[in-house]
Design a protein around this nucleic acid. Structure first.
Lengths: 265, 265
DNA sequence: GGCTTAGCTTGACACAGCTCAACGCGGCTC
DNA sequence: GAGCCGCGTTGAGCTGTGTCAAGCTAAGCC
């Protein structure tokens, strides 16, 4: 087997996009990438608790998509729901528009996370999901996933877990939006990102944001200017060093402190 | 069969609590109440798309709980997850505490709605659910529900639908919290309640709030004083007539208008 | 190089909604 | 009845954050 190409894929999201592009070329890598067994994300992603032979079955229904370029949409709000998508590399944002108004950014998806879960049981996707950078995903047709989960309780359990996790994340977000100050929101955002990177085997202290300040502001319910100002302040306070989209977390402890301080509003 | 006691149960939540209490006495009613076929909520609740004989199977696993009194908790954050609960009458609020801080109210549950879905796949409930008034619920042990859903695709589909609906509601809430003014939040809250009552066969114009101003404020991310002030303003504007917890919606059109007006922040 | 453009930062100011404080009202206990 | 308590209302002032406006930076492109 040699190198595991899926690791390259994962890393590519935080390195030059060109890397991902070159890697796409070979059919051999393409084959390997679609196999859950060789995927470095398998411990985080859907098939968590599956036996090897069950994983084969899952592999069989998963479709590999051509990489999305920055700005490409994976699916659009209102289009028929067919599949959920596991991010392999890169990152996505989910947006919803209500009543023709402006867009609300409701989620970011990093590698191993599942997009499209909120369309399950519905005729169409309730939001638009767009790539923030060159991004590869595994498409999992839901009808086939459901059929498979009929015989694989582990898989079903994992699906439930993924859905309820997203619900709990939403609750945390609601709490953030209704009770936290701008400082706390940004501190929470960074500690959360840091944690998600750490779980995926990356440095929790040094990473590149794939989203713009406007995206961050939209997501956190803040004006762009506020995001910018507070980032500046964090910098002078020695909490982080930010240069464009490059982030270095200098004092994670303090950042967590800010994120969680109580009764300050 | 005569009268359908489940209708009484439903109505009792908006009438004197004592009614609910007296109705509990008879074992015969108690039996009937647990049967989905005779339940007036069945078209809204989980078993939506089931055949009669499948519904029998569902009936068999559902446990009827003693009515909760106002302030009683259905389950507490951190206790082991075992069941989801369908509200039969009354109403519930869900709260989550994070890091020992103050509580965040994340949801209200009305008859036919399911509480506890966000614990699915987890070891413990991620929030505490408390009765806002005398409330009856159907307990649905999740392991048995899951076992049953293995053979009943319709049931499984309905479960997915319920979960993804809650996710979409959360998204709408996030939008409300991050983009809407206090006026819009309250208008949204009332139009939403009105709609939910209408769907359940009640007047969409006249109802009684089971939650306090503090609950509303907590839920909407507003100070109690703001809730009170804006309610007062709505009243002088002729949108609603509020007396304590009794609400009359005078101009639903205008209220919807306020709730949905764009770009006002 | 210079131009353009998107994204980001900084400053000045306004205001929505929070906080603090006082008060009113109904229900409860003694 | 008196006192108490939970809940709701109202007022006055303060402040965090949005808005508007201007300028900056870096990347892409000719």
């Amino acid at each position: 087997m040699g190198d595991n190409p899926s690791i390259l894929w994962l890393e590519s999201s935080f390195m030059e996009d060109s890397m991902a592009d070159t890697a796409t070329g070979s059919p051999r890598t393409l084959l390997n990438e679609t196999r859950c067994q060789t995927c470095s994300l398998s411990s985080l992603c859907l098939p968590l608790a599956l036996e090897l032979q069950d994983m084969d079955q899952l592999d069989a229904i998963i479709r590999r998509r051509a990489p999305l370029k920055k700005g490409d949409s994976l699916f659009r709000q209102g289009t028929p729901f067919t599949s959920v998508f596991a991010v392999r590399s890169g990152s996505l944002k989910q947006m919803t528009t209500e009543g023709g108004g402006e867009e609300q950014l409701t989620n970011f998806y990093l590698p191993s996370e599942l997009a499209g879960l909120d369309g399950i049981g519905e005729a169409s996707y309730p939001g638009t999901v767009v790539a923030l950078e060159t991004t590869t995903v595994c498409e999992i047709p839901f009808d086939r996933l459901e059929a498979l989960s009929e015989t694989l309780p582990e898989l079903r359990g994992q699906l439930y877990r993924s859905m309820s996790k997203e619900m709990r994340d939403d609750r945390r977000m609601m709490r953030l939006l209704s009770r936290k100050t701008a400082d706390q929101r940004l501190a929470t955002f960074f500690t959360n990102l840091s944690d998600r990177f750490r779980r995926r085997g990356y440095s929790p202290f040094s990473f590149r944001l794939s989203m713009s300040r406007a995206d961050i502001g939209n997501y956190l319910g803040l004006a762009v200017e506020t995001v910018s100002r507070i980032l500046g302040r964090f910098q002078t306070q020695g909490l982080v060093a930010v240069s464009g989209r490059e982030v270095n977390i200098l004092d994670l402890e303090a950042l967590i402190e800010v994120a969680e301080q109580e009764g300050c509003r």
